[in-house]
C-alpha cells in the first residue's frame, strides 16, 4: 500500500494563479460559445465549426468549380488546384469565383504559379473557369454533371 509520504510531490498553484487560470478557461469557453452561436469564420480560432455543417436538400444542385487549361503543347488539361500544382487551392478559387468572373485576369496567377513550379512542363496559354453541376433527385446522383464556362483568360506572357 502506498502511503502519503511515499507519494510523488504535488505542486499546487497559488490563489491568484488558480483564479487567473479558471477565469482564462471560462473566458475561452465563452469566446468559443459566442463564436459558434453568432460569429463567422473570420473569428478564427474562436469561430464556428461550420465545415460541412449545412443541410443539403435532396434535390440540390451540387456545384464543383475547376480550372481547365489549354497548353502550348496543344493539350487540354485540368489544372491541379493545390499547393504543389498551380500553387492555389481549389477552395480559394471557389471562394473567389464571383470575383474571377468579374475580373478574369485573376486567373493569370494560376498560370504563373504553374509555370513557376513546373518550368519544364508545357505552359498554359488559355484558362477557363468551369462549373460542373450535378443534380440530386431524392438524395441520389442523377446522371453525369453538366459543365458551364464561367470565365476565360488568355494567359499573358
Amino acid at each position: 500500500m502506498v502511503t502519503q509520504s511515499q507519494a510523488p510531490d504535488v505542486v499546487r498553484v497559488g490563489r491568484v494563479g488558480k483564479t487567473v487560470r479558471v477565469l482564462v478557461a471560462v473566458a475561452g469557453i465563452g469566446l468559443l460559445i459566442n463564436g459558434s452561436v453568432r460569429a463567422s469564420d473570420d473569428a478564427w480560432p474562436f469561430g464556428p465549426m461550420s465545415q460541412y455543417a449545412m443541410s443539403v436538400p435532396d434535390d440540390a444542385r451540387i456545384d464543383y468549380t475547376r480550372v481547365s487549361a489549354v497548353t502550348d503543347a496543344g493539350t487540354t488539361v485540368d489544372v491541379p488546384l493545390n499547393i504543389e500544382g498551380a500553387g492555389v487551392a481549389r477552395a480559394e478559387i471557389e471562394a473567389r469565383a464571383g470575383e474571377i468572373v468579374k475580373d478574369p485576369s485573376l486567373l493569370q496567377q494560376v498560370a504563373d504559379g504553374w509555370a513557376r513550379k513546373h518550368p519544364d512542363q508545357p505552359k498554359y496559354v488559355k484558362l477557363e473557369l468551369i462549373r460542373d453541376t450535378t443534380q440530386l433527385v431524392k438524395g441520389k446522383v442523377e446522371g453525369p454533371p453538366t459543365s458551364q464556362v464561367l470565365a476565360t483568360w488568355e494567359v499573358r506572357r
Binding site: V37, P48, A53, S55, A60, L136
Partner: peptide, 20 residues
C-alpha cells in the same frame, strides 16, 4: 461545437443528419 454549427446553419433545426 460542430454539432451546434449544424443546428445553427439550418436555423436551429435538426435537419442535417437526414440531409444529403
Amino acid at each position: 461545437l460542430s454539432a451546434v454549427a449544424k443546428l445553427r446553419s439550418a436555423g436551429w433545426a435538426l435537419t442535417w443528419p437526414g440531409s444529403a
